[in-house]
Simulated assay, not measured.
Amino acid sequence: MMKVERLTLSVEGNTKEVLHGITTQFKQGEMIGLVGPSGGGKSTLLRCLALRDPWTGGDYSWDGKKIISGGGKGSQKYRSKCAYLEQNPSLNPEKSALKNVLIGQVGQTSWIRRMTGMVRSDDYMGAMDELEKFGLLDKAHVKAGKLSGGERQRVAICRALVHGADFIAADEPVIGLDPKSAENVLGTLQELCKNKGKTVIAALPIELAERYCTRIWGLVDGKIELDVTGRRLTESEKRSIDLI
């Protein structure tokens, strides 16, 4: 169980609040769709929950253990358990899919591995196993710059799993993808929740959140104004979060 209490984030010299005292909780195996109007704070919330940005205030606990208290962005131990998937995955275009998986994200991998690229044989096999599971084994030695958008997102997901992520925050992971690629990416995330007990929170278009997610949050002006089981939203619910 992950529990958030009074999450606040201020910018511009701590004078302007972007997130306003958010309190919520979520658990292992959930896939939560984050919806709402542009500029409502979705990307910021995801980065805070994935321990990529510091909090101005609030508490964050996992299974009863506080990992943030009163601000900050948590310890390296917990940051390594979180993955943040950007709209355009931050892969090195000149390195192969395999090497991108092995090197990992900042916050997930030690600086020694990131500088030297040295890996153990067990890590190598683990990376190849994950690539195979997601239909990317034939792309293992292809440079990331030559992969399609959907393939790059799945490489980023493999990277998260290889480096031990239990929680994945995905910021519009299917934007710009064709329908089939989007379906592959969201199907992959859905499978991780159902079969591996991972927790995913993804900023998505409302129709995809309704289709793939077990729960939907509606974020407006830095506040969660809607929190319902994943289903088709009513017209009044869409109106409450400025989507009509």
Rank of each mutant, 00 (worst) to 15 (best):
L204N: 04
Q190F: 01
L85S: 05
L51Q: 12
A202N: 05
K180W: 11
V142F: 03
Y212C: 08
L219F: 06
S236Q: 15
E132S: 13
I157F: 06
C158Q: 05
S80I: 01
W55R: 07
K198Y: 04
Y212E: 09
I157R: 03
G107P: 06
K66P: 01
N88Y: 12
E5W: 00
F167I: 14
V18I: 15
G218N: 09
K198M: 10
E210I: 02
R6I: 00
E151Y: 06
W111G: 02
S236A: 15
E30N: 04
L226G: 10
K143M: 11
A202S: 13
F134W: 15
K223I: 02
A182G: 11
G13L: 11
D123F: 06
K81L: 15
H141K: 13
E132P: 00
M115T: 08
Y212V: 04
K66M: 12
V142T: 13
E132M: 09
I22M: 05
E191M: 12
M2T: 13
K139F: 09
T44A: 10
G117K: 10
V11D: 04
E207N: 14
R47E: 12
S110V: 00
L177Y: 03
L46P: 06
K196F: 09
K42L: 08
M31K: 04
I224N: 05
Q87V: 02
Y78R: 11
S236T: 13
N100T: 01
Q108Y: 09
M128A: 02
S240D: 12
G29A: 09
L34T: 03
W217T: 03
I157Q: 04
E235T: 13
A169V: 10
C48F: 07
V106E: 14
D178P: 06
C82W: 08
C213A: 12
V106D: 11
C48T: 05
V162R: 12
P93F: 09
E191R: 14
C193K: 04
I201H: 07
E151S: 07
E132Y: 01
L98S: 05
G230Y: 05
Y124Q: 12
I157Y: 04
Q76W: 12
S80K: 15
G104M: 07
A156T: 00
I67F: 07
I22H: 03
T15S: 15
A83G: 15
A165M: 10
I201R: 04
N195E: 15
Q190H: 12
S10E: 14
Q28C: 01
V185P: 01
V228Y: 07
Q76S: 14
S80T: 11
R152T: 00
K146A: 14
Q105E: 14
R113P: 01
I244K: 13
G21W: 00
I241N: 05
P173D: 07
R154F: 02
R114V: 00
K198W: 04
N88V: 08
Q28L: 03
L98F: 05
D63P: 01
D221V: 00
L219H: 06
G64I: 07
E17V: 00
C82L: 12
L189V: 01
L91I: 00
Q87N: 08
G222R: 05
